[in-house]
Design a protein around this nucleic acid. Structure first.
Lengths: 109, 109
DNA sequence: ATAATTCATCGTAATATTGCGATTTATATT
DNA sequence: AATATAAATCGCAATATTACGATGAATTAT
């Protein structure tokens, strides 16, 4: 039904899925990379760098904010975005744990 | 339009987005965790473990196969799934690189 | 005050995803 | 051959996502 049955999964599984969504669209990957590369926070420069309309970029930023992986500081008339370190660390830990959980033991090889 | 403009992003950005999609739905996270936990490959046991219809599980498996992160071995009448080590390693590297690229230097704190 | 800017949000359109029942395919068993 | 089992695929419905033009809100500059 296009509606994910979140209630049948664990909190952890739902959170991992959410964190993964931050990277599950190339525009968001590009936005995160730009924010990181510029160390200083980026704002509407993203619109210039990406071939996407301002409204589209704004929507991706909103999604990244919802997940919590970035934060925006209003610095009128601009808004300055940067990585939110605690959530970034949370994501690193979560994915690190998953990747470590598998030790190349497969049956079909 | 619901259609991602993949052509305006780099190969790498598109690939990372694809790899992230493997983890961007709680059902797929659960499936990967089950496959890993059972070391031996899981097949339709997934349907028993998850409260999802067989058709739904099959579709998630198809997506994971498309990405390449799992592989299925036909072992009639069952199909045995397991992690595809090279792609798993690719994902680990890709996310590792991203997470390392940020060193807690933010402007808004 | 007025105009210019930056960005968020609204509304809309198009496409994608999620989920499942029903069916099909493929093989094993009888 | 007929049946049973396992899994993929089809077709549909419902919801989500992606994208953008237009508009609105907030602030700065004139």
């Amino acid at each position: 039904m296009g509606v994910t049955k979140t209630e049948i999964f664990t909190e952890q599984q739902n959170r991992i899925a959410d964190l993964a969504k931050a990277f599950a669209h190339p525009a968001r990957v590009a936005i995160l990379q730009l924010i990181i590369a510029r160390k200083a926070c980026v704002c509407g420069d993203l619109v210039d760098e990406l071939e996407l309309a301002q409204a589209t970029v704004s929507q991706h930023l909103k999604e990244l904010k919802r997940i919590g992986i970035i934060q925006g500081e209003i610095n009128p008339p601009r808004v300055c975005y940067c990585i939110n370190p605690p959530v970034w660390e949370e994501a690193r830990q979560a994915f690190g744990a998953i990747f470590e959980s598998f030790e190349a033991v497969t049956c079909c090889n």
